[in-house]
């Protein structure tokens, strides 16, 4: 395999479901493990993944998700999301995938920058202390674009 042309990956995580959070985390961690820079911008419901009180309670969506193969009516029953999430977390643990909080620690220690979106933070009336210590700051989308400061930077919306 040849040398990659990708030098930096910028991710925007806009969703608060566990599968989307993990998609961002696995790709960002995978980048760092290959020597590629990585940063994640958490916006809208994606902010749930970096809020101290919420990050361990992300759920998989059982309604409106045809790949769950559960009839929509059943997916909406009380406890269904929690059950599906529990099953998924069990499978993840088998693969040695870290829980959300631990994954964020690994990402931060690996040099992956974690940013909160200022607009969404204001909209949800959140404060700095609602977020994990590893959050590198609360910035605007313009600030985030300026992080694309080198050749081979790619931006991905999740």
């Amino acid at each position: 395999m040849g040398e990659t042309k990708v030098k930096k990956m910028l991710f925007i995580l806009s969703k608060g479901t566990i599968e989307n959070a993990y998609a961002a985390f696995v790709m960002a961690n995978g980048a760092r493990m290959e020597g590629i820079d990585a940063e994640i911008f958490f916006t809208f419901f994606g902010l749930e993944a970096v809020q101290k009180k919420k990050l361990e309670h992300l759920h998989v969506a059982t309604v409106g998700n045809p790949a769950m193969h559960i009839p929509t009516m059943l997916g909406g029953l009380p406890g269904m999301e929690a059950f599906a999430t529990k099953m998924m977390k069990k499978e993840m643990e088998k693969l040695d995938m870290p829980p959300v909080g631990e994954f964020l620690e690994i990402l931060s220690d690996s040099g992956c920058k974690l940013w909160g979106c200022k607009l969404a933070v204001d909209m949800f009336h959140l404060e700095r202390e609602d977020f994990i210590d590893e959050l590198d700051g609360i910035i605007t989308i313009g600030d985030f674009y300026s992080r694309a400061d080198q050749e081979g930077t790619h931006l991905l919306f999740i």
């Binding site: 961690n29 760092r32 020597g35 040695d96 995938m97 870290p98 631990e102 690994i106 220690d109 690996s110």
Partner: peptide, 23 residues
Amino acid sequence: SIRGIKKSGVINVKEFYSLFPGG
């Protein structure tokens, strides 16, 4: 795995990255 490194008790993730740059 990187999680294994974190749990290893030998080295933490931050130092691991600084000792072996570039992945």
